[in-house]
Write a protein that binds this DNA or RNA. Structure first.
Lengths: 133, 133
DNA sequence: CGGGATCCCGCGCGATACTG
DNA sequence: CAGTATCGCGCGGGATCCCG
């Protein structure tokens, strides 16, 4: 899992290039809130408020917004139980599940390199600090 | 590669939770410009201007900013050739290489589900449109 | 409880100009 | 060519209020 060799294929470029829909979709998930939400919903189905508690620091508005986006793209399924008070549950769709690996990869990477990164930052900041002297 | 089963481990939560450094780092790469740049530099080493041409739509300022961030976190290595005019090359570090798999995963996912997503969007928008009636 | 709508502030980001 | 700095505006996003 560590250093998997990846053969780039030409079509990979489509995402980064002209295809505007692909770019839009990519941008929609390549954002921290979306990824964090996917990461959490990967574990289990959650209600809005529960989810909000899990994703530390997200505002009410950003969560709804993120969820709408993911729902619209068919990554998340929203289920409303018509009770009172209402009970709304969010879970990953099939497509959403397919993203778990990727998202987990990013989390794993962060953990794996955290110390190195901390060091890299210190060195970088130090260099700049005395360059600014 | 498609639907890799991933066992969640408890530590995965660290990234999404209290550890502020991890969160910061995660947020740094979980953004579309950073991921696009990593994706492109995964292919080959590039100069600033070349890179700018590859990442369609990125502004001069955003590119520098993104590159500084990645350099600071030790994801990208910046090499200055003291010629005139200056030649500056960017390439992935070891840590950066380790991200390629993940980033490619996101690209692959986008391609793989693009049609489904397009359909999901149409249905979603249609539902809202007549709900708004 | 879930989530729309509105208001408004702050800063993200683009444009432009200047240095080495 | 690569990069920093400055300015200015536009909109992202938080706070708040209301509704089913």
């Amino acid at each position: 899992m560590e250093t998997e060799q990846v053969g780039r294929r030409d079509e990979d470029r489509d995402v980064t290039r002209v295809d505007s829909l692909a770019r839009e979709v990519f941008a929609g998930i390549a954002n921290k809130w979306a990824l964090l939400v996917i990461n959490i919903l990967g574990e289990r189905t959650l209600r809005f408020t529960e989810l909000r508690a899990e994703v530390e620091g997200i505002s009410h508005k950003m969560l709804t917004q993120t969820l709408r986006g993911l729902e619209r793209d068919g990554v998340v399924r929203r289920t409303v139980h018509p009770t009172v008070p209402p009970r709304v549950e969010y879970r990953l769709t099939e497509a959403g599940q397919a993203l778990r690996g990727t998202v987990n990869g990013m989390c794993a990477w962060t953990r794996r390199y955290l110390d190195e990164i901390e060091g890299a930052r210190r060195r970088f900041d130090a260099r700049r600090a005395d360059a600014a002297r």
